[in-house]
Each structure stands twice: as structure tokens, then as C-alpha cells.
Simulated assay, not measured.
Amino acid sequence: MQKITMTVNGRSVTADVEGRTLLVDYLRETLNLTGTHVGCDTSQCGACTVHVDGMAIKSCTMFVGELDGAEVRTIEDMENKDGSLSALQKAFQDHHGLQCGYCTPGMIMSLSALLRHTPKPTEAQIRHHLEGNICRCTGYANIVKAALAASGQMPSADAFAQ
């Protein structure tokens, strides 16, 4: 067992962990943060993407014991301070960027990292950035539209309703 202290969604967490515990399992089973999904267990699908020290990572590829002193952010912490949906979450909703929703948390975590570093990405940059995230339902077109809308490069769906 190893003692670690890290920050998860703005809260300090201290725990004794086994070295072989994956971050995704720790988040889901110990911290009950079940928005991070387990899709493939082989780092192929991206459903388990979270932010570690500001970088999007697949949490099935990282041992929690490696995270002493790290800052982890999950989908549960993506909303605005007032509890409303973030611009990216709202864009996913407005542009139908989800169907079954299983991949959505990982997509949002990946895209939010892209938008933080590249505020106005091109469609090609968005598609390239999503190569590590698999969606079996949508075909990605509406996910790309959602990312473009969240970056202010296309009107929100609310603009079409008027």
C-alpha cells in the first residue's frame, strides 16, 4: 500500500492505495465518480478520459499511485460554477453530439482540453484530436459541430430557433 494525496475536482483526497489500482477504477469505485466510463480497458476508446494536471489522459492507462500531488478533474466538475452546463456541454446538447451518451464524458474531456489550448480549432484539428475517442453511434459530425459551436465558430442551436 502507498499513501497518496491528490486533488480531485477541487477537493483534497488522501488515501492508501495499491500500486496496481487504475485511476479509472479508483474514481469509480472509491470516489463514486461514475461519470468516467470504462469502455475497453485497453486505452482504445477514450471513454475514461479525465484531466490530470490539465492534460487529457485515459484514466485506464494510469495507476493512481502515480498521482501523488496531482490535480485530477472529471466530467462531474465540468459544469459552470452555478451548476449550469458548460458551453461545450450545452453545445453537445444543442447540436445532438450524443446518442447513447456512453462516450460523451470522454469526448467532452478531450475536447475541453483541445479548446483550452486551441480556442478556435479547425474542423481538421478537432477530428485529429478525437482520434483517440471512439463513438459507435453518432458518426462524429454532430460532435464536431458541437466543438465548433463551443468555440464560437458557428451559431448555437438557440440561434436557429428564432
Rank of each mutant, 00 (worst) to 15 (best):
Asn9Thr: 02
Gly10Glu: 03
Ser12Thr: 15
Thr14Asp: 04
Ala15Tyr: 08
Ala15Arg: 13
Val17Ile: 14
Gly19Asn: 13
Thr21Pro: 01
Leu22Ser: 07
Leu22Trp: 07
Leu23Glu: 10
Leu23Asn: 08
Asp25Leu: 12
Tyr26Trp: 15
Leu27Ser: 02
Leu27Val: 06
Leu27Arg: 04
Glu29Ile: 07
Glu29Lys: 15
Thr30Gly: 00
Thr30Asp: 14
Leu31Ala: 04
Asn32Arg: 07
Asn32Thr: 03
Leu33Ile: 04
Leu33Ala: 06
Leu33Lys: 03
Thr34Gly: 02
Thr34Tyr: 00
Gly35Pro: 02
Thr36Ile: 03
Thr36Val: 09
His37Val: 01
His37Asn: 13
His37Phe: 06
Gly39Pro: 06
Asp41Pro: 01
Asp41Met: 08
Thr42His: 14
Thr42Phe: 02
Ser43Lys: 06
Cys45His: 05
Cys45Arg: 07
Cys45Gln: 09
Cys45Pro: 03
Ala47Ser: 15
Cys48Val: 13
Cys48Lys: 10
Thr49Arg: 06
Val50Ile: 10
His51Phe: 12
His51Ile: 03
Val52Asp: 06
Val52Glu: 08
Val52Lys: 03
Gly54Val: 08
Met55Val: 14
Met55Glu: 15
Ala56Asn: 05
Ile57Pro: 02
Ile57Asp: 02
Ile57Lys: 14
Ser59Asp: 06
Cys60Thr: 14
Thr61Asp: 15
Met62Gly: 00
Met62Arg: 15
Met62Tyr: 13
Phe63Gly: 15
Phe63Thr: 06
Val64Arg: 14
Val64Ile: 15
Gly65Glu: 12
Glu66Cys: 10
Leu67Ser: 11
Leu67Val: 05
Ala70Ile: 08
Ala70Cys: 08
Glu71Leu: 01
Val72Ile: 15
Val72Glu: 09
Arg73Leu: 07
Arg73Ala: 10
Thr74Gln: 05
Thr74Tyr: 03
Ile75Arg: 04
Glu76Met: 08
Glu79Val: 05
Glu79Ala: 11
Asn80Ala: 13
Asp82Pro: 08
Gly83Trp: 06
Ser86Met: 02
Ala87Arg: 09
Leu88His: 00
Gln89Ile: 05
Lys90Met: 11
Ala91Arg: 00
Ala91Glu: 01
Ala91Leu: 01
